[in-house]
Structure formats: C-alpha cells, structure tokens
Design a protein around this nucleic acid. Structure first.
Lengths: 211, 211
DNA sequence: CTCTATTTAAAACACTCGTTTAAATTAAAC
DNA sequence: GTTTAATTTAAACGAGTGTTTTAAATAGAG
C-alpha cells in the first residue's frame, strides 16, 4: 500500500513549508509536487482538491496543539484561581514549542500557517477552524475574559482581535523581521524569543483600563 | 484631452475600492475595468502595468496623508516637549479622518489598502513606500522612541512591528469585525470608533516596561 | 477643414492555474 | 501465478490571468 516514504506525507511536508513561506494562493500545486518529487495529479488523488490539502496541512498541527493548549489552560485555572493575563498567554508557550519536536521549525511553521490562514481565508478555513476547534477557542477566550474582568465584553472582543492581528502579522512576517533585527541590532532571535517578546505587549494592551 | 470624467480617475476609483475589499492579487484587471466601465487595455495604456496601478492607488492617498501627518507630529513636538505615546498616536487621527473629505470612506479605504499592501507585498510596495515616504516614517518612529525612552531600540523595533500588525490586520478585516460587533454586541462602530479603540491598546503595549 | 497626436476599442497572445482523464505501473489478495 | 485493487504517470482540458497588438474613434492645433 505504501512505497518509499508515503506520497501523502511528502506532499504535506512540502506544502506546509511553501504555504508558510509564500501563502496559500501564491503557492501552486505544481511547485508543491515538484519540491515533493511526486506527480502533480497525486494531490487531487490523495486530497481531492487544493482547499482540502490546505485544511489537511493545518489539521496536522491543530490536532496536536489544540488539546494540549486547552489542557494547559485548564491546569492553570485549577492551580491558580486568579491567573493573570501574562500567565494565560505564557501557558500557550510550551504547547507551541512542543511543535518543534513534531517537525523541525514546527512552531514557526504552525504560527505562520495560522497567520496566512487568517489573512487569506475567504471563509472556508475560518469555518473549518471554528467548527473543528471551536470549543478550545471559547475556552481560551473565556479564560482571558475572566482574568481581565474590568474590560467589558464588547471591548474585549475588539482587543482580542487586535491581539490576533499582532500575532498573525508578526508570525507571517517573522522571517523578514528576524533578519532585519539581526542586521540592524545584531539581535539573533529564534521564534521562541519573538513569542516571549510579544506576550507582555499583548497583556498590557488587553488589560489597559478603558477611558 | 479628457472626455466625460477621465478614464484614469475612473480606473483609480474602481481599483482602490476593489483592492481594499479583496486584496491586490485577488482583484483582476478585468474586474476593475468592468466596474469602471472602461476598456481593459486602458489600464496598461495609462499606468503601464498592474503593479504601477497599485502604486498609483496608494500614492494618491500617501501624497496627501504623509505631509499632513508629519506636520501634526512636528506641531505636537513643538508645543509639548514631553508628548505621551497616546498624544503621538492621537495626532494621527485627524490626518486620517481628513481622508474622508478626499473621498467617501477615504479613511477606511486608505487603512485597508495599507493593510493589504503590507500583507501581500513581496517587496515592490514596501520599497516604493520606504523610498518615497521614508523621511516621514523615520520622523514618526523617532517621535515614538523619544516618548518611550525606557524602551531599548531593539525592543522598540519589535513593538512597532507588533503595532503595525495590529493596525494592518484590524483594518484589513475591519468590515467583517464591525459587522460581528453590531450583531453580537449591538455596537455600531464606524472607522473612527475603531481607531479610537485601538490607540490605548497600542500605547499600553508599546510602553510597557521590559521584564 | 485637415492633419496629427492622443485615447479608446476589440481581439489575440502567451502563460499559469486547478482539475480531470485514461493508460501504465505497482502492490495486495486469493 | 493470476486477478483485483490501489497508486503513479503523462497528457490534456478549460478557465483565468496580465499584457500586447492593431485598428478605429476622438480630440486639439494650425
């Protein structure tokens, strides 16, 4: 049933790398299959369509990340009744870095894919994520809201989207930014360093009093 | 030399609307010319290429906005030696809202175009903006740095890009977000309301002490 | 009016894209 | 070993893209 190293996996590996680097619509199936050294038609044979390939690429990460992240949040809530925003965001760091054990540059790739997804998606990806992982998302949103009770729900809605924008944009352009930082400031940041830089920024913004 | 209402202007008007709504690469010249009710070839005749059309669309806003914004920053620095971050960000609000007098929904369109540009651009737009408006950008960056002297330059570099991400992402998805906010919280925000919501968020994040 | 330069128009070009088809190959089942 | 199913291959399809070309229409100047 399987040959040398599984065509399906070869496609997924090549696709996630290219999607993260260049975005979904800017990456053609021909480029993916040539990098993966498989036939063009095998994408449609194994995945049905490009859209389903995109979803499969993201699902391979989300299926691992989401349950672990949720568990960390729950663990935090049980151990500390008054967890700060910093604590909640920080609880996500380990699950994120665990993805580096899944695949090399896994954390960076996952975050970049997420960024591309939210930026490019015309709906099918947003729908896919909310229907498949909605419970984890609401758990996280509730945790954030509880730890900043002085922020009204409507205001929190906007601030969480500001936060999403920060993360998504930073990760989508993380490669370029780390390069510039290395050249201009001699700062050599890996993805973990960037994550740890952004957390206090986000916490401060989300929890700043209104008016 | 000109006929009814200038083909060139009709193209620019149709293009900026579609670019802001759907992004640059997702908007075809055929869609633009059909909405503008001009011939397809007139785009290449008047602008040379699609890339140059994109730059022309952005330049029409930047040429107005950048000098006014710079002047506001300078005015603020002259009147108040210790301007806060909130003051600096707020100084940009009026120049932004002035764009609504330039064209209907001018502010929203401009910010969405900026967002699309920074998200999609593979370099030609980033190059265009920094070479044509670089002096204004450095003036702004310096103003921000001066009003948060406790933040090291390298850290400030990252925080300004976090900020850019927040603004760009929020504006690129502003239409969808205002719709959701109206449905879920009965909050009817125009673009000015969103701008005023985001400023304290940004100020808090940029100026939060390190460690 | 006539001539010239500018602008518009319709069509074709050359290319890329995702997808499909049908034959060839490989693997599994009996 | 034969048969059956799963997979890979090469080729073509049909639709869409930005751009170019060539001719027609329109404007302004003398």
């Amino acid at each position: 049933m399987a040959n040398r190293s599984d065509t399906k996996t070869r496609i997924l590996d090549a696709a996630e790398k290219l999607f993260a680097e260049r975005g979904f619509s800017e990456t053609s199936l021909r480029l993916i299959t040539s990098k993966a050294e498989v036939n063009l038609a095998s994408v449609n044979y194994h995945f049905g369509s490009k859209k389903e390939l995109i979803r499969a690429v993201l699902a391979r990460y989300l299926d691992v990340f989401m349950p672990v992240a949720s568990a960390e949040i729950v663990k935090l809530q049980n151990s500390d009744e008054t967890a700060s925003l910093n604590d909640i965001f920080s609880a996500l760091v380990e699950p994120l870095l665990d993805l580096n054990q899944l695949r090399t540059e896994g954390t960076r790739t996952f975050l970049q894919l997420l960024g591309r997804g939210y930026i490019e998606s015309q709906g099918h990806l947003r729908w896919f994520i909310t229907t498949h992982y909605g419970e984890h998302l609401t758990l996280f949103v509730k945790a954030v809201a509880d730890s900043a009770p002085h922020i009204p729900p409507a205001e929190m809605f906007w601030r969480l989207h500001f936060t999403l924008g920060t993360v998504v944009f930073t990760m989508a352009s993380a490669d370029a930014l780390t390069e510039i930082a290395a050249a201009d400031f001699n700062e050599h940041n890996d993805i973990e360093a960037v994550i740890r830089k952004v957390i206090p920024y986000l916490s401060a913004g989300v929890s700043v009093p209104v008016n």
